[in-house]
């Protein structure tokens, strides 16, 4: 009787172990496909594993690999959903932390920076100070993608006052032009806002038009041609004057965009540290 019971026990154990072994094989396969950059196949294997893993022992890992594969394939929303699922199926604090970091990186890339900030705040409250450096680092990157280089620089400074990215962000912030300043000087002297942002020709042309229509308006009023004066002032001079102010804003925004793009290009191609 005892031998029979032992036999059944061994058989059941072997069947269970065999099942687990096969599930592990699927996980290995998914991982291999992912590393071979065969993302469709990797996702298929993860889905297979999730379907057959009735005890949900490998679900978190499978969802995580699925999220990584979706991210690499450019399906960022699907990647976030997979990471969300990966988080549900684990109790391991370290795994949860890593998944949250992956989600933050995805949100930075998707420019859904408010989500990234929310997740960073969660990390701040859930994990101790040992992780704070990484939290500051990704918060800095979040600010970069919000085009807020000054705040980004302040975040990197919290890690190290000589941090490479702190200096870089500071430099970018200093290079950028002020929209308010450009608009103000353009209101005082038409064309000066464009000149300030480096659009010399545009600035000179703008100044020329304003001088011409201003001169004709004043001349008309001086000669008591009130109707002509009102018409030239309202339809021509004011139009060019307002156009000059909005043009100076546009010019600064374009210039700032160029600076941001160059900075992001540098970060993408030449910066050696961790990137989203």
């Amino acid at each position: 009787m005892q031998i029979k019971l032992l036999f059944i026990l061994i058989l059941l154990t072997s069947v269970r172990l065999n099942g687990q072994l096969h599930l592990h094989e699927i996980l290995l396969k998914a991982s291999q496909f992912y590393h071979a950059e065969k993302y469709f196949e990797a996702i298929t294997e993860c889905k297979r594993l999730i379907y057959f893993d009735s005890e949900k022992l490998h679900s978190s890992t499978a969802y995580e690999i699925m999220g990584d594969s979706y991210k690499e394939a450019g399906f960022l929303s699907e990647a976030v959903q997979s990471y969300n699922q990966a988080e549900i199926f684990t109790f391991d604090k370290e795994v949860i932390y890593n998944i949250k970091i992956k989600k933050i990186k995805l949100n930075i890339l998707r420019r859904t920076t408010s989500n990234a900030h929310r997740l960073l705040n969660e990390l701040d409250s859930l994990f101790d100070y040992t992780k704070s450096e990484e939290v500051h680092y990704w918060r800095g990157w979040t600010y970069i993608f919000e085009d807020n280089w000054r705040f980004a620089s302040l975040e990197f400074a919290k890690i190290n006052s000589l941090h490479e990215l702190k200096n870089f962000c500071e430099k970018v912030d200093n290079e950028k032009y002020s929209v308010t300043f450009a608009k103000t000087i353009s209101a005082i002297l038409p064309g000066s806002g464009q000149i300030y942002s480096g659009n010399y020709l545009n600035g000179i042309i703008s100044l020329g038009w304003n001088v011409l229509w201003g001169y004709l308006s004043i001349k008309a009023f001086n000669a008591d041609r009130i109707f002509d004066g009102v018409m030239i002032t309202s339809l021509l001079w004011l139009r060019f004057y307002n156009g000059n102010i909005s043009n100076s804003k546009k010019s600064v925004i374009e210039k700032n965009q160029e600076i941001t793009n160059n900075a992001l290009y540098y970060l993408q191609n030449q910066y050696k540290g961790k990137k989203p």
Binding site: L11, S14, N18, Y51, F52
Partner: peptide, 23 residues
């Protein structure tokens, strides 16, 4: 018996036609 059962289960694993259909 254990060996035979494992062998049989291996052939009927998650990549068998029936498992693939179910998936």
């Amino acid at each position: 018996l254990i060996f035979v059962s494992i062998k049989l289960l291996s052939q009927e694993g998650y990549y068998s036609v029936s498992s693939r259909i179910s998936f």
